[in-house]
Design a protein around this nucleic acid. Structure first.
Lengths: 221, 221
DNA sequence: GGATGTGAATGCATTCACAGCA
DNA sequence: TGCTGTGAATGCATTCACATCC
């Protein structure tokens, strides 16, 4: 393989990269040093060929006869995903979910630096939650520009989500983690990841209903 | 189309079904009565053929020359997804995230009946959060069995997730919404949906890095 | 032997394109 | 005319299978 044309890396591959990373970090904690594509795949319910193909998109860093050096693979995947460097993040919308995210301690470990939170409720502005300041919406744009923030977590009510997203884009945000159950209209240069609880619950009820059917023998002819 | 063979419905189709439902309910609020596959598709960034193909897996309920009756389509999709009936749910793990979910009011609207929450911290047991009782873990199995609960939201720390999942399965749970960043080992008859914040943030940083590169005309290192 | 990396083959999902109906 | 439903064609992702290397 010579060099990488990022635009033709399959989406599913990028998703699995995150899974590999999580599993590899678990292996590291268990003091393992190398892992084969077969072992890594089995621990995640994937085939060995799938693992090798995924990794091969990004270069060749396995050792034939041995497997992959875990430490090396972890740092390679982090570099690919862009999590080897720190990212500044803002959170907009300090409701139940916003507060929970502010109190969640796991961001620092992932090199995510939560710069500040924003809300338009005067009662919330000025508070400190989980060590993060809550500021008024009028400071959103200036903060993003001053600190070169590129990521935002959007936890506002659904009817204001699009308007806030517009402000975020105008201010220079490049990626939005959208917790509102709505499709945001943004330029193609802006990445959006949706976290939709209702949607995932519906996937569950569908699968459970399906399982119940096939179990009951309502099979196809 | 004669009969539905559920096991061969593409996963992506089921995901989009939820998107269709969300968009259709928005149209309903706007007092629209019918919608064509073209209109529905465009509102979600999909092609008309995609929409028709997806719906055709489940029968034929469009009206040539007219489109789909929105009310009818909504109730059909709900039936397909299994959300036309009410579901009992338990929540296990009353940390920051668990509390936020308990305080979130949106479940009732989706026919999700949150029966109770569970935690092993004596200080939390006995509290009422968002109108939901917190009980000790020792009552989990009995509650699930007594109320025929089939769905669980798992918001416990990562190191206890598998053990709790085992209890859930043993008690008769059929679907788990897993908020812990770990792969649960469960029988194939149990549905699992993962909500992994770190994973989604990594997808974002990857896409943002990619966009930055292609914009700058740089190749991957 | 044991493992990787990768063309070739397979299997799915999406898109095309058109017959048929209101 | 406008739109659905659906086989056929296309395009992607996964899996196979094997040359290659430690």
């Amino acid at each position: 393989m010579d060099f990488i044309r990022p635009e033709l890396i399959p989406d599913p591959t990028v998703r699995r990269l995150s899974l590999y990373l999580r599993q590899l970090e678990l292996f590291l904690k268990q003091d393992r040093e190398t892992v084969s594509s077969k072992q890594l795949g089995e621990s995640l319910g994937l085939t060995d060929a799938q693992v090798r193909k995924d990794l091969a998109y990004f270069g060749t860093f396995g050792h034939p006869g041995v497997g992959y050096n875990i430490t090396e693979l972890v740092s390679r995947i982090k570099r690919i995903l862009g999590t080897d460097k720190a990212w500044n993040v803002v959170l907009v919308g300090v409701g139940n979910l916003g507060r929970a995210l502010l109190s969640y301690g796991g961001f620092a470990a992932k090199e995510m630096h939560l710069v500040a939170a924003f809300d338009n409720d005067p009662n919330k502005v000025g508070q400190s939650i989980g060590g993060h300041d809550v500021r008024g919406m009028e400071h959103l744009e200036a903060t993003i520009k001053a600190q070169e923030v590129r990521l935002a977590m959007l936890t506002v009510p659904v009817d204001t989500a699009q308007a806030v997203a517009d402000v975020l884009v105008k201010s220079g945000i490049r990626g939005i983690l959208n917790f509102s159950p709505t499709s945001l209209a943004v330029p193609t240069t802006i990445a959006v990841q949706a976290v939709d609880l209702a949607l995932q619950l519906e996937q569950l009820t569908f699968q459970v209903s399906l399982n119940a059917m096939t179990r009951a023998g309502v099979r196809h002819p």
